[in-house]
Computed example of a mutant assay.
Amino acid sequence: MCIGAFVWQTNPHYPLILFLNRDEYHNRPTKEAGWWECGEILGGRDEVGGGTWMACSRKGRMAFVTNVLELNSFSKARTRGDLPIRFLESSKSPKEFADEVAKESDQYNGFNLIIADLSCNLMLYVSNRPKEEPPTIEEVSPGVHVLSNGRLDSPWPKAEWLGLNLITLLEEKEMELNKMVHKLMRDTVKADKSKLPHIWSLDWELNLSSVFVQFETPLGLFGTRSTIALTVGFDGEVCFNEEYLENKKWKEKTFKYNINEANITHKQSI
């Protein structure tokens, strides 16, 4: 379970601002953010499935994935964490890649995928849910968006709060991004029970209904174990900051680099 809030093509300083929480069992083997062996991909790594929840590349590509909240899952499904990596490694355009994923989407459990290529100023949303409908491929419009475990911009309580809080903080022009992270992504307020989607048990949904999650389960502690703040400037400078749990302590890493041959421009609203 993850939740991400992002600003796409409407901020005067950054064509992309992203805040993302990764929720997972604390005992699941995970590698914190870093440059992968190829030297082209930056992100964390799930050491069970081998994929990632979010990563970006020197070429100006970014991708993140969230699970869809649903009752039944396919035990032999392909790992959803491969989807961001495949996009970052691909030479296909975002649309070509999205079409490829759509053709094989039934091989995955429910997913929401955001892919963006800053070199062509294009962001797409891809999902294989609802099951009874064809896969979704939509261009993401300029603005503030939130993606959790429903569809993009679904009116789930924590998604609505996060979106509204992000808009409010963006209006405070002096607010520093590192302060925004804590105000936005450490919110532990839970939703009213009547507003939950009622897909899983009430206890699970209530525990998952805050932006920052932490609760005990029979399989161990579950909750937010990574928070990413990503900005991409019009000059191609990328700042990737991750706060992550390691041995029950929060640590922090920051990476800065420039997109190769960056040519980033404002995109007109559609």
Rank of each mutant, 00 (worst) to 15 (best):
M1L: 12
T10Y: 03
N11S: 13
N11I: 07
P12C: 07
H13V: 12
L18C: 09
F19M: 02
L20Y: 10
N21T: 07
R22L: 04
Y25H: 10
A33E: 03
W35C: 02
W35P: 00
C38Y: 04
R45Q: 15
D46S: 05
D46R: 04
G49D: 06
T52A: 07
M54H: 09
A55T: 04
R61L: 05
M62R: 01
V65S: 03
T79K: 13
R80F: 08
R80Q: 07
G81S: 11
P84F: 08
P84S: 09
R86P: 10
L88N: 03
S90T: 11
S90H: 01
S91Q: 14
F97M: 02
A98H: 03
A102H: 10
K103M: 13
Q107P: 10
Q107F: 11
Y108C: 01
Y108S: 04
G110W: 00
N112S: 09
I115V: 11
A116C: 15
L124R: 02
Y125W: 09
R129G: 05
K131H: 13
E132F: 11
E133R: 14
P134C: 08
P134N: 08
E138S: 14
V140P: 03
S141C: 10
L147F: 02
G150T: 03
R151C: 06
L152S: 02
W156C: 05
P157E: 08
K158G: 01
K158N: 07
E160C: 11
L162I: 11
G163D: 03
L164D: 15
L166A: 02
L166N: 00
I167F: 07
E171W: 06
E172M: 13
M180S: 09
V181D: 01
K183C: 11
K183A: 13
L184W: 04
M185F: 03
R186K: 15
D187E: 10
L196D: 09
H198Y: 14
I199Q: 09
W200E: 13
W200N: 13
L202N: 12
D203V: 12
E205I: 10
L206D: 10
N207I: 01
L208C: 08
F212K: 09
V213N: 05
L219K: 15
L219T: 13
L219Y: 14
G220S: 05
G223F: 00
A229C: 13
A229P: 01
A229V: 01
A229K: 01
T231K: 10
V232P: 00
G233W: 01
V238E: 00
E242S: 05
E243P: 01
E243A: 06
Y244R: 09
N247P: 00
K251P: 02
E252F: 12
I259T: 03
N263H: 14
N263T: 11
T265S: 14
H266W: 10
K267D: 05
Q268F: 12
Q268H: 14
